[in-house]
Design a binder for these strands. Structure first.
Lengths: 214, 214
DNA sequence: AAAGACATAGATCAAAAGGTCTATAAAGAA
DNA sequence: TTCTTTATAGACCTTTTGATCTATGTCTTT
């Protein structure tokens, strides 16, 4: 189908921070003549549109994006082209988001704190269709698969719990009886290995299972 | 003392993310001939050393830095030169950190998500010795001054509370009686306007009063 | 010296949280 | 169909939390 010119790697950058976009462009261009940033986008929607227009070799994507979340954008892109190479570049290693991004079809994952050389290495790996995950992340991903799978309902409860809602309020918000909420909370404490709801809330935030409210 | 050539603004960038540093350099250089990045540093210690060596017009500083925190670095710099112009550039608007940074002597404050033009505007303002705060931040700072001042002991308790510790455990950890801890928790709930300890923990994290444990 | 803020702690009491049972029902997999 | 998972809910009990008192001692500021 596509006649490949092996030399050139065409890149699309999707990140809502202009500073980060410029930093990426600067690092990727300088001294790497075969890397070319062909497009940039500041939110998920623009990112998807740009991807459709440009069909880049690699899409570098942040997860926290306005309009359309990074995970959603990845899912939609991979739906249109299951071979699309996507490298996730995010600020914190909130495990849950990474997990979802990988499930949605991202090939690589990196923290924004990485050194320049690592970024380039990751871009080249993903451009070649290879997985790229920091070892620690890969390890946590495997553990995460096993241990902490939350059911949809538990996730609902956790989200409200992590905003400081009481069981009574959670029950009302979800249209449940309070004992039901208590069961879910109980399961959450066990799965998250938290000794009480406050620790559960902190763990949920730390792992990116829920996000801080505005 | 220093004979001033008004044209040139010499900048020092202190941020632990190479991507962000490159992004800043790129934005600040391009099309702004009077702005010159004369130095970069990747942690607080290096930042302080670079500042001593370079005495830049403006120091652009992240708050979350290894080795020496941004707030500490700001304090030390301002101790040596109370007229040093420091612009804080940070990822999240954790109010407490901003508050401390301003108290430590930062002149301006910006989120990393700002547009390029705003960044340049802020740099020029701070270079001229003027305060630069986004209106929303300024407003919150004023409120914050009034309402939410925590005592040192309350901060101790809050830190442990936000890790999910129980009153009993907090008491043991701090060498207090449990009733004393309860009083502090009570004061915290009132000052943070939280309805229970879980919400207090979330608020504390959101405002940057405490940080997520590693 | 007096006033105010802070830290300490004891005593109660009601509300909420958390643990442990049992039990029903729907959806999906073996 | 049978088994498993998930979601639902009731009952019971203990622990923890949070609210509200009173009270003391130390600082710092006025």
């Amino acid at each position: 189908m596509t006649t490949q010119l092996p030399a050139r790697i065409r890149l699309l950058i999707v990140d809502d921070h202009p500073i980060v976009r410029d930093g990426l462009v600067s690092i990727l261009h300088e001294g790497e003549p075969d890397l070319e940033v062909v497009g940039e986008a500041g939110d998920g929607k623009e990112g998807l549109a740009a991807w459709r227009r440009l069909r880049p070799t690699v899409t570098i994507m942040d997860l926290q994006l306005p309009e359309l979340s990074g995970v959603e954008a990845i899912r939609l892109i991979r739906q249109e082209d299951p071979k699309a190479n996507i490298l996730v570049l995010t600020t914190f290693d909130g495990d849950a988001d990474i997990h979802r991004a990988i499930e949605a079809g991202a090939l690589g994952y990196l923290l924004k704190s990485v050194r320049r050389a690592v970024l380039i290495e990751a871009v080249r790996a993903v451009a070649a269709g290879q997985r790229y995950l920091p070892p620690a992340t890969a390890a946590r991903l495997v553990e995460g698969m096993e241990l902490e799978r939350l059911t949809p309902r538990e996730t609902d409860v956790l989200r409200l719990l992590a905003q400081g809602e009481r069981n009574r309020e959670i029950a009302d918000a979800l249209g449940l009886a309070e004992p039901t909420v208590k069961i879910h909370v109980n399961n959450l404490l066990r799965k998250l290995q938290a000794k009480d709801r406050t620790e559960a809330a902190v763990i949920a935030l730390k792992r990116g299972l829920v996000h801080l409210p505005r």
